[in-house]
Amino acid sequence: MRQYAAPVLYVTIYTTQFLVTASMGVIFAYLADLQDRFGLSHWELGLVAAAGFIAGLAAQLLLSPLIDRGHHRFVVWLSLAAAVLGAYGFVFAESTWSLVTSRAFAGLAFGLFGLVARKALIGRDVSGSGAKVGGLLSCAVAGFISGPAIGAALSGISFEAPFLFTGTVMALLGPIAAVQISRSPIAAAVVDYSDLADLLRRPRVQAAICVHVGIWGLIGIFDATVDRYLTDIGVSSVELAVGLLIIGVPLMALPPYTGALAERLGGGRVAVPALLLFVPAVLLYGWIGGLLTFILVGLAEAVTESYGVMGAQVLVLEVTGAERAATGTGVLEAVGLTVASVAAFGGPPLYGLIGSRWLFGGWAAVCLVLALLAMWRMKTVEIPPKIVKVSH
């Protein structure tokens, strides 16, 4: 690849990642509107909301080995086609199943584009990947935060306007990223589905999974209960929106730096301490008394989360190398999505049953146990995997 192409690759990938996640984020501001507009029952609305996570999870597990085998061109075009179809689908949807299908396309795009983009950024050597992958996470978080704002800004025009906007912009800019990714050199290897099980047996991957389970479990609980919780303590919707924007800043700004630090010190030496520091922040979520304490606790949690997530990703890349980067990070993210989905499902009824202090305190205890498990797995001697490389 020519020297001037690298900055173009970064800009187009980061921009498209922002758009893909913003498209996913738009719908979160529209769930109640969807229910009223289409007369959806609660279970139908839940099905629409869950379809994106399920599609993303399936895509990561089933297609990540294809990326490592060198089929990144096919996967990137598939992900962008799914992103455009998912956005436009909400414009023309007329039934529950068309909404579910549109949401599934958006989830497919979300699950696949991040994997193939990460593979292209890493290239043929994981050196320097911490900052690159961190930048990708920053753009993803920025997209999620911006999605509801895009929806709110354009909803005055029409219900369909935000989806038309995101779909059209992705249709125009996405192919530029797809061409850049298709031309980028990657490390390809003979990878199949047995590699998924092999990676899950690796102690260092298990340590990274422990960190991800703790963080993504909190994300699932938080997303499903925060609106109800803060409303109960007197925080308005406008204050909540402001608070969420403020606590999202560390996750937008820090990942390139925390990723570089994890690469320099070692993923485990960043991820595991971060999970230990994550515990008191999770515990304090249960004792929020108003907007100010929500912001202070949220900022502390977001900082530790940025170290933990990037440390875990770098830890997995240390095991997989560039050759199995997509498969390894796909497994890690699939576990995270699964845990988040379960936590989101169980969070609201548990909040109503035991209250915020026991709910967040209980998950803080789980995170402490996971941190101790991660420390134990990090002490286990790692046997390097055998990788058959192929020219690409």
Results as ranks from 00 to 15, higher is better:
residue 175 P to Q: 06
residue 174 G to D: 01
residue 220 G to T: 05
residue 136 L to E: 03
residue 168 T to A: 14
residue 146 S to G: 05
residue 208 A to N: 07
residue 134 G to M: 08
residue 216 W to I: 03
residue 196 L to H: 11
residue 224 A to Q: 02
residue 188 A to P: 05
residue 206 Q to P: 00
residue 206 Q to T: 07
residue 155 S to E: 03
residue 209 I to K: 01
residue 137 L to Q: 10
residue 222 F to I: 08
residue 169 V to R: 02
residue 172 L to G: 08
residue 196 L to P: 02
residue 139 C to I: 02
residue 178 A to Y: 05
residue 177 A to S: 11
residue 238 V to W: 11
residue 226 V to C: 00
residue 126 V to T: 15
residue 168 T to K: 03
residue 185 P to W: 12
residue 237 S to D: 13
residue 177 A to Q: 04
residue 179 V to C: 02
residue 185 P to Y: 12
residue 217 G to R: 06
residue 151 G to T: 04
residue 147 G to N: 03
residue 199 L to N: 08
residue 174 G to H: 09
residue 237 S to P: 00
residue 163 F to N: 08
residue 164 L to D: 01
residue 152 A to W: 07
residue 145 I to S: 01
residue 203 P to E: 02
residue 164 L to N: 05
residue 178 A to R: 07
residue 189 A to C: 07
residue 224 A to T: 02
residue 213 V to D: 06
residue 166 T to L: 15
residue 219 I to Q: 13
residue 187 A to D: 13
residue 218 L to F: 15
residue 197 A to C: 04
residue 172 L to M: 06
residue 174 G to Y: 00
residue 225 T to G: 12
residue 212 H to I: 15
residue 192 D to R: 00
residue 169 V to T: 02
residue 225 T to D: 12
residue 146 S to K: 05
residue 129 S to D: 02
residue 144 F to W: 14
residue 164 L to A: 04
residue 155 S to A: 13
residue 238 V to N: 09
residue 185 P to I: 08
residue 130 G to K: 04
residue 172 L to A: 15
residue 231 T to V: 09
residue 226 V to D: 03
residue 187 A to C: 13
residue 217 G to E: 12
residue 230 L to R: 07
residue 129 S to R: 05
residue 163 F to S: 12
residue 219 I to E: 13
residue 197 A to H: 10
residue 195 D to M: 07
residue 190 V to N: 11
residue 197 A to W: 14
residue 166 T to G: 01
residue 194 S to D: 14
residue 139 C to M: 15
residue 127 S to W: 03
residue 224 A to W: 11
residue 197 A to S: 13
residue 133 V to M: 13
residue 223 D to E: 15
residue 219 I to R: 10
residue 228 R to H: 14
residue 221 I to D: 05
residue 175 P to D: 11
residue 176 I to Q: 03
residue 220 G to K: 05
residue 220 G to V: 09
residue 149 A to Y: 15
residue 186 I to T: 15
residue 128 G to A: 07
residue 165 F to H: 10
residue 143 G to S: 10
residue 183 R to N: 11
residue 141 V to F: 09
residue 125 D to K: 02
residue 159 F to L: 06
residue 171 A to S: 03
residue 194 S to M: 11
residue 203 P to Q: 03
residue 188 A to Q: 00
residue 136 L to W: 07
residue 192 D to W: 00
residue 230 L to E: 07
residue 212 H to A: 08
residue 139 C to P: 02
residue 150 I to S: 02
residue 226 V to A: 09
residue 154 L to S: 03
residue 224 A to P: 07
residue 197 A to R: 14
residue 192 D to L: 02
residue 195 D to I: 10
residue 173 L to E: 06
residue 201 R to S: 14
residue 210 C to Q: 04
residue 137 L to Y: 15
residue 206 Q to E: 08
residue 125 D to S: 11
residue 202 R to G: 00
residue 127 S to I: 07
residue 197 A to E: 10
